[in-house]
Design a protein around this nucleic acid. Structure first.
Lengths: 116, 116
DNA sequence: TCCTTGTTCAACCGTCTGGTTGAGGAAGAG
DNA sequence: CTCTTCCTCAACCAGACGGTTGAACAAGGA
């Protein structure tokens, strides 16, 4: 293990149930029992999912009597967004440059594969 | 398997080696051999990684003589960004509303961390 | 034709993962 | 204190995952 945070975040969101849990927590905090209700898995399984989300920093749990309300930590999303945007922009920039090069090419440019 | 696309994309990017491959492909297309060189794993392992990325729609492979250049498909990033932004905004909106409620509360509200 | 290069397929292996059941801890309610 | 409720821990299981080795395929070049 010992995966870096970005790996943990991506891995956490790779599971549909966990994405669903995040979606519900975006509406409001909830307890483990409440979160488990809609799914036909045991409460323990949901508890495990929450542990994964917690290790990824996506969720925090406090104590409130017996209940342990789960809270969504939205800041971590920025980590992903930054990573994604970085490479998306880089790729787009590259396409733009390639486009410019193609546009500026003379007609008799030697091209492998298309010697028409 | 038969996981939905979003799950495949997140799962694909959960692996550091695959994120690294994506980073390199953002700079320019490359062959399997070229991509495998920096890592001390076999070329077969990298080929498997590329298959995962391809199934997630993140890369495409064409044929060019013996070589199979790998190309980054940046559009899929939008899928993730949309998902993330949706719930981040929803959560922020919720905090904003909660803030308003707290602000409008009478002063004798018990136990607030920072008076004055 | 045979040979070389680049890549994938197939089988296997150890580990991680999502699920289960069963037991146990924490904090009210009686 | 005992009982109940809510939740987590521990052990286990089947399947997926990342890696390996070895063989095979595809497409030039000799």
């Amino acid at each position: 293990m010992a995966a870096d945070e970005l790996s943990r975040v991506f891995a956490a969101l790779a599971d549909p149930t966990r994405r669903d849990i995040v979606a519900r927590l975006a509406v409001g905090d909830a307890t483990v029992g409440e979160l488990a209700a809609p799914y036909d898995v045991t409460v323990q399984a949901v508890s495990k999912h929450l542990r994964v989300l917690e290790d990824a920093g996506l969720v925090s749990r406090s104590r409130e009597a017996q209940r342990r309300p789960v809270h969504l930590e939205a800041e971590v999303f920025d980590l992903m967004t930054k990573w994604i945007e970085r490479y998306r922009r880089q790729a787009e920039e590259r396409y733009r440059r390639l486009d410019d090069v193609l546009r500026s090419l003379p007609d008799d440019t030697p091209r492998e594969g298309n010697p028409s």
